[in-house]
Computed example of a mutant assay.
Amino acid sequence: MNQIPMTVDGAEALRTELRRLKHEDRPRIIQAIADAREHGDLKENAEYHAAREQQGFCEGRIQEIEAKLSNAQIIDVKKMPNTGKIVFGVTVTLYNTSTDKEVRYKIVGDDEADIKNNLISVNSPLARAMIGKQADDTAVVTTPSGEVEYEVVAVEYL
């Protein structure tokens, strides 16, 4: 499988979720299954079936996180030389020439992307248009509502 780029923060968030799933959720679900079994007939026991379903989701998520972490290429931009170029993991300030507004995004892996927190996926059209650019460069991004021109204001290796 290909390596998945991930920031240090993204990898730590996955490790934290994995610890919670293994050490809190899994034991709680196992106990819920044991408690539901004590109520007798399992065919009509909604608590038992709900707990078993939760167990399936929990185990599936554990496997998914373990696979992602084993294939993760963790990139720490703070340890990279600041060339001024936009690369995975940088925080970039852009000026939208059509709205006359500045926006600031951090370019992250797919799993870490969260537009509400200004984290955009490296595979998003905006990030793909910006990779390799530097301050004062412009890039045109094709959006559903047409082309948008952005000017790179700043590139920070935070």
Rank of each mutant, 00 (worst) to 15 (best):
E47I: 07
V8T: 14
V148W: 02
D137N: 15
T16Q: 09
G84H: 08
V141H: 03
T97F: 01
E64G: 02
A72T: 11
D76G: 05
H49T: 06
D136W: 07
K22S: 03
E66V: 09
Y157C: 12
E17H: 05
H49R: 11
L42I: 14
N71S: 11
P144R: 12
V103T: 13
D25P: 00
R28M: 12
P81W: 02
R15Y: 06
K101T: 14
L119C: 05
A72H: 08
F88Q: 07
Q134L: 07
T91V: 13
N123D: 15
A36V: 12
A154I: 07
I75S: 01
G40H: 04
E38C: 00
V77E: 01
V141S: 05
N117H: 13
A13W: 03
D111P: 00
M1N: 07
N45V: 12
K79I: 11
V90R: 04
N123Q: 14
K78W: 01
K79L: 15
E53S: 13
R61M: 11
Y95Q: 05
N123A: 12
T7P: 03
V140N: 03
G40Y: 06
I115E: 06
E156H: 10
A11Q: 10
Q55L: 15
L42W: 00
V90C: 12
V8N: 00
S145E: 11
I33S: 01
P81F: 10
A51G: 06
Q63V: 10
T142E: 14
P125H: 07
I65T: 06
V87I: 15
M80P: 00
I107K: 00
A32E: 13
V87R: 06
T83A: 04
N96R: 09
E102I: 07
I30L: 11
E24V: 15
P5Q: 07
N71E: 13
G89D: 06
E38H: 01
V92A: 03
G60T: 13
I74C: 04
Q73T: 09
D76Q: 07
A46L: 09
G109I: 12
S98Y: 04
Y150P: 10
T143M: 14
G56W: 04
V140C: 02
R37M: 12
T7Q: 02
D137S: 13
R15L: 10
E66I: 13
L158K: 15
N123F: 08
D35F: 03
A154D: 15
Q134G: 12
M6I: 11
L69G: 05
A127W: 07
I30D: 08
A67N: 10
G132E: 08
D76H: 08
C58A: 13
S121L: 10
I33Y: 01
T7I: 08
R61A: 08
E147L: 09
T7L: 03
S145T: 15
Y150N: 11
T83V: 09
I131K: 01
T142F: 01
G60S: 15
G10L: 07
D137E: 12
T143N: 04
D76N: 15
G89E: 06
N82W: 04
